[in-house]
Design a protein around this nucleic acid. Structure first.
Lengths: 184, 184
DNA sequence: GGTTTTCCATACGCAACCGTATGGACGAGG
DNA sequence: CCTCGTCCATACGGTTGCGTATGGAAAACC
């Protein structure tokens, strides 16, 4: 933890995500972040005009990190459509991968700008999933249903905390994916 | 809007949910709620010891409203397992049915008590869905996978804002449910 | 080495909340 | 009619957070 002298804009954004994950949006406060970064508000208001500007920067980071980065990681693994869908499942089910999702989707219900961003993210993710399913199935409506089911599963896997008896979540998740990949 | 003289505890809770839906958890503030109810804080602190007590009352209401009430509405409609699952889908996809879900699930990540409540709700819902699928399929693992997929779909239908080209969400939702109800 | 730019500390005013304390209006019960 | 319990208004102190203003240290530049 070498006491560096200068903070960058990205450090503020990173600290904001950490605070969001730990304490919710209520924890993303200028003075609190300043303390964790070892500086004061003066630093913040030099890098950002506003608290709103910080939030905008967070949204930007989430938008690319939650689409392009994930897709790149999946594609880097290679394989055919089925392998990629399984890999997508593994990547997104990693713990802490979707820490900001809930807060942002909740916020999107009340803020038009945030809603637009979430829609963009959802469209990109669905397009990726849809393209993979298109390599496996012929019927467009079937493809759309399976894509929606898989995307919902990835979201639900993180948002739902139900127990599954003796079976673990990982096993259920795997079974569900295989069900979606199975030919009707 | 007859200016009533006395407020009940439930009115405060109802106003809290309205505020939560409109402005997020940040809008659930004592003095703000008092204004919308046409009273002052004095009233609040007579009905509740604390802001935390209000939140607890909200959680209680959500817990029963999001499980027993929904299940009762579905069962009241009657029909076999397949019909009930389709009805469950219709009931939960009504707008505004899950306004508190996102905020609560987000909160559950950081508060052990809230997490326990969400888990109870998820367990009850999953048990209901599972029981219905058990009437349709023989394999336990298959049942669990389909149950998780359906529950995820119901959640995802509300949380995901992706577009589906010419097909509307309602149509995709219906196709997805039929896919889950179809024999392998 | 002096000047300018970069980055941050300090101090201030202001608003929003929380929770408490206290008194008052109003109806119920005797 | 008087009292008592119910329900709320008002006033207060304390905290937290935002945004601004201003000065200062340290580095970059010439």
């Amino acid at each position: 933890m070498a006491r560096q002298r200068k903070r960058t804009r990205d450090e503020w954004v990173a600290a904001s995500f950490a605070a969001l994950a730990e304490g919710g949006i209520d924890a993303v406060r200028v003075e609190r972040l300043a303390r964790t970064l070892g500086v004061t508000k003066g630093s913040f208001y030099w890098h950002f005009t506003d608290r709103a500007a910080l939030v905008t920067a967070m949204l930007d980071a989430w938008e690319t990190g939650g689409t392009r980065d994930v897709i790149a990681r999946v594609d880097a693994h290679g394989g055919d459509a089925g392998a990629r869908l399984r890999q997508l499942c593994r990547v997104t089910s990693r713990d802490g991968e979707l820490t900001a999702e809930l807060a942002l989707r909740d916020w999107a219900r009340r803020d038009a700008d945030v809603a637009m961003r979430v829609q963009r993210v959802d469209d990109v993710r669905m397009a990726y999933i849809r393209a993979l399913f298109e390599e496996l199935f012929p019927n467009a409506e079937d493809i759309e249903a399976r894509s929606m089911l898989l995307y919902s599963l990835l979201i639900g896997n993180d948002f739902i905390v139900a127990r599954h008896g003796r079976r673990g979540r990982a096993r259920v998740l795997k079974d569900a994916v295989e069900l979606l990949l199975a030919q009707a």
